[in-house]
Design a protein around this nucleic acid. Structure first.
Lengths: 222, 222
DNA sequence: GGATCAAAAATTATAGATAATTTCTAACTT
DNA sequence: AAGTTAGAAATTATCTATAATTTTTGATCC
């Protein structure tokens, strides 16, 4: 995970905080207090404020004027929303990327899929999954589109980690293989349709809460 | 244009600067110098920096560490990219909004279309156009999607103003009327398809440059 | 005992000042 | 004359301090 040592302090802080929010280390709704963060990173609060603005732009935090910043909460509605946005935009990206996909790239994507199958924890599975999507979409050559998709991926990962916190079962990703097969045959349209369905598939499973009751947890698992 | 008097200073600054960038008052590639902006708004540079981060998130400015912030440049490729993203996302939004559209909303949208036809300058046409799109999309109830579409609209407006700077001819918007007619008949799918085409239609016209030569200018005119 | 209000503490937002980096200018060398 | 390099000016990034706002706490009143 590149630390980006030449980045500005604000960027470094925002990356660390983003990672914590995504992984669930900081709970949804929790307040982010600028002086505390500043103290932890041994800086003043000015770069911290800029880091907050960055998180806000990614949709990971929300700030109310004069009332501080909190980690963005989320419900089933937002999970669905992000899934549908990803589906729409990733399909668009894949349609543009398809003509530029080489055999080498597809091989790398297959490696990523295998790595996902082998992974024993959510975190490494998510990493492999994101690598797969990035590999097949990057050649579209549309930077703004890719940046937006990246932010949506971060949101997806958040939901995933929140749902699958402790327990995790390996699952082999049939969709990824179907997408790669279609792309290898030059059938971009079929690949795009499968990708759209794939991203919109929302996993749900019962989760035991602290109070002993069970509730349903949701996550985008594509 | 709501000034948002209860906003934070940073937000106020970012709104004014965004307006200038969109309208073309500040040229693409121009540097934004924080001390100058701070002086103009009679504040220190801390809120200015936060305003810059906000503009960056909207894609209106780009900042290089230790090298300051510049107004984002754009080329035909980016115009196309924004158009395609808008098409994909607005179609998605309309599909969700359609079941919640009332006759009253559609009437308001028709008013906006008429206002666009009557407008004598680009600026008021753009305002009417954005009102139309917002009216028919807002009922989708997907805040993140709507926020992203808003940012893309700002980018579209930028291209529009850059191309049509001085000259402008009124054009009656047949697409808007077709979309409204389909929605009134309950034919959401047809409306969505028309909207998708509508947004992707990129206007182009020859523009005389300062040096006397002519070049092609491009803009999203939906 | 619960609600209300006021003072105190904590926190956010802005201002002014300092250090570090980059860009600009211009002289100097080849 | 063109390119290079050193110094100066401008600009960015950060820190410390101050003002304004909100949340919390505690005491008072009903």
């Amino acid at each position: 995970m590149a630390k980006g040592t030449d980045d500005t302090i604000a960027v470094r802080i925002s990356k660390v905080l983003a990672d914590r929010i995504i992984s669930g280390a900081i709970e949804p709704g929790a307040r982010l207090r600028q002086d505390h963060v500043a103290e932890e990173f041994h800086t003043s609060h000015v770069p911290v404020r800029e880091a907050f603005r960055r998180l806000e732009a990614q949709g990971l935090a929300i700030s109310e004027p004069r009332r501080g910043v909190r980690v963005a909460a989320f419900d089933l509605g937002e999970v669905k929303e992000v899934a549908e946005m990803r589906a729409a935009l990733e399909v668009l990206a894949l349609r543009h990327a398809a003509p530029h996909l080489t055999a080498a790239i597809l091989d790398q994507a297959e490696e990523a899929t295998k790595a996902g199958d082998k992974s024993r924890d959510v975190r490494s599975w998510e990493e492999a999954n994101r690598a797969f999507h990035r590999l097949i979409l990057a050649p579209c050559g549309m930077p703004r589109l890719l940046a937006t998709i990246d932010d949506l991926h971060a949101a997806s990962a958040r939901f995933l980690f929140a749902a699958w916190r402790s327990e995790w079962e390996t699952r082999t990703d049939q969709d990824h293989r179907a997408i790669l097969a279609a792309l290898r045959q030059g059938n971009a349209e079929s690949a795009a349709l499968t990708l759209g369905r794939h991203v919109q598939w929302i996993g749900r499973k019962p989760v035991r809460t602290a109070s002993g009751t069970t509730r349903e947890a949701f996550a985008i698992v594509g």
